[in-house]
Write a protein that binds this DNA or RNA. Structure first.
Lengths: 335, 335
DNA sequence: ATGAAAGCGCTAACAC
DNA sequence: GTGTTAGCGCTTTCAT
């Protein structure tokens, strides 16, 4: 920057202003500076700028995993929303491991993000303490915690499960099952488990048995999980009429496995998923699923962040439920 | 940090050492410092540390998109490899747009990464200039450029296309087509196009027509693309026996579309994809595809980075071809 | 509208 | 093994 200022024949302060707040500089001066910058190929050092201004321009985003289209959509929506404000996303992922989450959070905090976005609302005590002490806006997303740390933009996973159960019940099914991940071990998907609980609760409310609700395999759940889980479930409960999969990926895996086993969907078995993944539209029959607008979730989060970081008196914690909807396709039949 | 040093009764320098190079500090002192840190909930500020030490601990990673399992696998492998060395990945994505790539690169450079990992080797002139001037190790991955900027860890996309063509030809097919993205507009997948070219070249080498090679739709290619493209292709070239899809996602979309149109795979149409995505193992029939170990690519890149950043005399640019292999499953028949 | 001085929170380099 | 001094490249603040 010193080089630029010398070449342009102005002080370094003027260069700084010409870059970050051009309005404050005479057009002629601005021009000279721009030329010098181009000639030298100067790229400002935001590390130094961050230290001085005490604004890093970082937003921390904690995700369970990168390899999930919906979480990627959140990251995507967020990035879009923040791009023009010149914020950078600092992404960390936990692999559904709370010990790892804490480690990652510490690393993130060392970069002094101006806000922290956490996926989910279940944290280790140490992580919660870290978050509380961070003194920056916290947003918990993709969940609807009863005791949130800061702002909330999400949906109720419990309600997802209940909605799935109600839908299947309304179709006249009575022998209803579900497939999801296990709760044992360190690696677990709390939000998926919440969907399973909601499902079981609604089943019980309707006086139906929850015996065919199967927890099997570790997060992240994908096609293989669904294939293996449905095989187990049908062995254990051969008379099952309808199944909820906590993730569309599992649902699709289950569908393919059924195809191989000669179980016709939806004639012999109805299937409903969660997440509205693109693949669900493509398979045959198209998958009935529960949709949450994750892109919107990301964009909303970005807009909230911008508002929060714009005004000084940070508004009191907000709570937004982006809701959910059933996408009726053809994988569920009437009983 | 000042607070920590006072509480521990040592100088700030000792605190710094106790954190970043504990060996240099007496165990007793170390202990005192650790206690003070815990008591105060102190988290070091790496922004300040970076400025002072001139090491940011950032590695820049430029990806076409986040929403692709293989690129996500690269990011994953890289993160794993770098985690223990306390490096952070700074991820940017271009959405297959070279103008955007340049913008993103400038933003990345402002964070002073210690190395830059670029996916692909086709950059705008301005981006190339930026890269050349960056004065940090550059690694181009997932490609095998003839005129690389720095290190290369990748595979030949051209060879992928040739291999696909050869495989189909060896099976006795003569009326062979392909589906990939368009080359028009700003948004394009150069590496996918390279695979298409390799495919065409091999077809011509065998004296076969490349008329049924269809370029349609913009990157990123996914299920919908495959479904739409195969419908168009079969309309245009109804006698087509075998098709290469530049991405497994397109291949799966094509497969589902064929199912809907009553075209039996592989009896009436053979299909080979690229990328070995998980879904390809799950569909029925399982998809024959060309596999590249993207996870290994990420890990290799991480290891190379560590070596590069470890030693002072940075080794001369290396070139690694991770190769490729055909995964024979059941979507290709003999003619 | 521009400039000068001070300092952000750390660590490199050198001293003891 | 620990402390002192100086300074990383910017921006804040205040002056002109």
């Amino acid at each position: 920057m010193r080089d630029v200022s010398q070449l342009a024949g102005v002080s370094r302060m003027t260069v700084s202003r010409a870059i970050s707040d051009p309005e404050l500089v005479l057009p002629a001066t601005r021009e000279k500076v721009a030329k010098a910058i181009a000639a030298l190929g100067y790229v400002p050092d935001r590390t130094a700028g961050s230290l001085s201004s005490r604004k890093t321009g970082f937003i921390a985003l904690m995700l369970p995993t990168l390899t999930n289209a919906n979480f990627a959509a959140v990251a995507h929506g967020l990035t879009e929303a923040l791009r023009d404000a010149n914020f950078h996303l600092l992404i960390a992922y936990t692999e559904y491991d709370m010990v790892e989450e804490e480690r990652q959070l510490r690393n993130l905090l060392a970069r002094r993000p101006e806000a922290i976005v956490m996926t989910g609302a279940t944290h280790s005590p140490a992580a919660s303490k870290l978050l509380l002490a961070a003194d920056v806006p916290i947003i918990e997303i993709a969940d609807l915690p009863s005791r949130p740390i800061g702002h909330v933009i999400g949906f109720s996973n419990h309600e997802v499960g209940r909605t799935a159960a109600r839908y299947l019940i309304d179709k006249g099914h009575t022998r209803i099952g579900a497939i999801g991940g296990t709760v044992e071990g360190e690696v677990r998907d709390h939000r998926g488990e919440e969907r399973m609980r909601g499902f079981e609760d609604e089943l019980r409310l309707a006086g139906l048995s929850a015996d065919a609700v199967l927890r099997y395999g570790e997060a992240p759940l994908s096609y293989d999980h669904g294939a293996a889980a449905i095989a187990r479930l049908l062995k254990k409960s051969p008379d099952c009429q309808a199944v909820f999969a906590v993730s569309d990926l599992s649902a699709v895996g289950a569908m393919m496995q059924c195809q191989r086993m000669g179980v016709s969907i939806p004639d012999q078995l109805s299937l409903i998923g969660f997440g509205d993944f693109e693949i669900g539209r493509i398979v045959d029959p198209p998958l009935t699923t529960i949709h949450v607008d994750f892109n919107e979730l990301g964009r909303r989060t970005g807009a909230t962040l911008l508002a929060l970081l714009g005004e000084d008196g940070d508004a009191r914690p907000g709570r937004v439920d982006v809701g959910l909807s059933v996408v009726e396709r053809e994988s569920v039949s009437k009983a």
